[in-house]
């Protein structure tokens, strides 16, 4: 990647570290995210994604490190950051005992928008929530809550959106609509950082950052991350896939073996070694060379982060 000029950088942090009760949750994280792009933030559970997002918007104070968010210092200019960042929490955190309209008007007033009622009305129309405008937020289904939360986030026209697992527990149709909107925002110049566990969502991002257990393990586009993983993969079909999985799981040459429906995904970094494994296990199985997926790359990364403490199986 070329070094873009500073104006094109939304998030620029260096050496971010957060320790809770002696446990390092984020370790020496350096991130540089370009403006007006959708950045996927991936990593296993407990890998420090939420903690990082909270440090970026000033909700947590890093124990070490420095940096800027939208050009404002994350340590000293929290107020400016809050004004220009929309943060959507993992758990629905608008007021369940206020109606949709009341929630949106509250947000508009806090941000000092000139016409809070008009702004709320506009947002309700954009969200397609006219019929529910006077319904309590707590009575909405998961999908509608998520739409409302996003609507509230973008209402004050932030320059940066931080979305923490926004689509957890939301049906595929609502997820697709959600991502269409995110792309619209990015096209309008908004920067988006979205954490997720879903591979299909990761592939919808312009760029991906993968962190595990506090360390940034990979950063780039989906293709770049797959290429960088250096994996070679086979899809294997056959009768007793479970036995083969167990056998390959103990094979030191195999990086990753995982079932995918009626097939097995086998990956390794050394092509020659993997070919040898394939040759040894052809009896009763069909080995088809395959392109590695993003998920293959992530699982390999995750295993690497564990220092080979156990392969995906």
């Amino acid at each position: 990647m070329n070094e873009p000029p500073r104006d094109d950088i939304a998030i620029d942090v260096e050496g971010l570290t957060k320790i809770f009760d002696g446990k390092t949750v984020v370790r020496n994280l350096t991130l540089r995210l370009a403006r007006a792009r959708i950045h996927g933030f991936l990593g296993p559970n407990g890998s420090g994604k939420t903690t990082t997002i909270r440090m970026l918007c000033g909700l947590l104070t890093p124990d070490a490190g420095r940096g800027s968010c939208l050009g404002y210092d994350i340590l000293t200019q929290r107020e400016q950051i809050r004004r220009h960042v929309g943060y959507m929490t993992q758990r629905f955190s608008l007021y369940e005992d206020l109606t949709i309209t009341e929630n949106l008007e509250f947000v508009a007033r806090i941000y000092g928008m000139p016409d809070p009622q008009g702004a709320a009305r506009g947002a309700i129309v954009r969200l397609g929530l006219q019929a529910r405008a006077h319904q309590l937020a707590g009575q909405l289904s998961g999908g509608w809550k998520q739409r409302l939360a996003l609507g509230a986030c973008v209402l004050p026209e932030p320059l940066l959106l931080l979305l923490d697992e926004p689509t957890a527990g939301v049906d595929p149709k609502a997820r697709r609509d959600f991502w269409d909107e995110i792309h619209d925002f990015a096209a309008q110049g908004m920067t988006v950082l979205v954490s997720t566990h879903y591979m299909d969502e990761a592939e919808r991002c312009h760029d991906i950052a993968y962190i595990a257990y506090g360390d940034l393990l990979a950063q780039g586009t989906a293709e770049e991350i797959i290429d960088a993983s250096g994996l070679h993969t086979f899809t294997v079909t056959g009768a007793d896939l479970h036995a083969l999985q167990r056998k390959l799981g103990e094979d030191k040459r195999v990086e990753m073996v995982a079932p995918f429906g009626a097939a097995l995904h086998v990956a390794a970094r050394e092509k020659s070694a993997l070919d040898a494994v394939a040759d040894e296990n052809r009896a009763g199985y069909r080995w088809t060379p395959d392109a590695p997926t993003l998920e293959d790359a992530f699982i390999a990364l995750m295993n690497g982060a564990h220092n080979g403490e156990g392969k995906a199986a």
């Binding site: 918007c57 909700l59 107020e79 004004r83 929490t89 955190s93 369940e96 806090i110």
Partner: peptide
């Protein structure tokens, strides 16, 4: 307890 504090704190108030 309701989790609304996180959003409130992230806002400029």
């Amino acid at each position: 307890e309701r989790g609304t504090m996180e959003t409130l704190l992230a806002m400029p108030v």
